[in-house]
């Protein structure tokens, strides 16, 4: 079993990266790999609660993050600096996360066999 880290740095709707990452994560979990996710930079916006895309006519995929636990994806991290720059608290996020300082995130990246960047 490999330790896989998904690094997500893109906002949810500006590009297709966020949705593609989520699909890849669900796929990887089906192969029973040990998966960690980290959200930093504008990637933290993916986890913002209260998303409502009705007027835009596109799918709000943020509720899917709540299903990750069922797929045994339980190691979910957010970089503290990214939250602070955006005026966000962990209470503003749709799922519980572990908040990391920059040095801790640097370490986390070193501890994985495979890193996928979105």
């Amino acid at each position: 079993m490999k330790k896989i880290l998904f690094i997500q740095r893109r906002s949810p709707y500006g590009t297709g990266f966020a949705k593609e990452a989520l699909d890849a994560i669900l796929m990887a979990s089906a192969f029973e790999q040990e998966i960690s996710l980290v959200f930093t930079d504008d990637g933290v916006w993916q986890l913002k609660n209260q998303q409502d895309t009705k007027t835009l006519g596109i799918k709000n995929f943020s509720p899917t993050f709540k299903a990750l636990e069922l797929y045994e994806v339980k190691q979910i991290y957010v970089e503290q600096m990214a939250l602070e720059q955006r005026g966000l608290q962990i209470e503003d996020l749709i799922i519980p996360v572990t908040v990391l300082a920059t040095a801790e995130l640097r370490q986390l990246i070193q501890q994985h066999d495979v890193i996928l960047s979105f």
Partner: peptide
Amino acid sequence: LNHTGFTPELEQALANFTLYVLQPDLAARG
């Protein structure tokens, strides 16, 4: 947005320009 790292620049801009934001894009992003 208010209370972000960019808010000081935004508030400076409000002195010179009229700022608008598209509400459906705010709503989509929560």
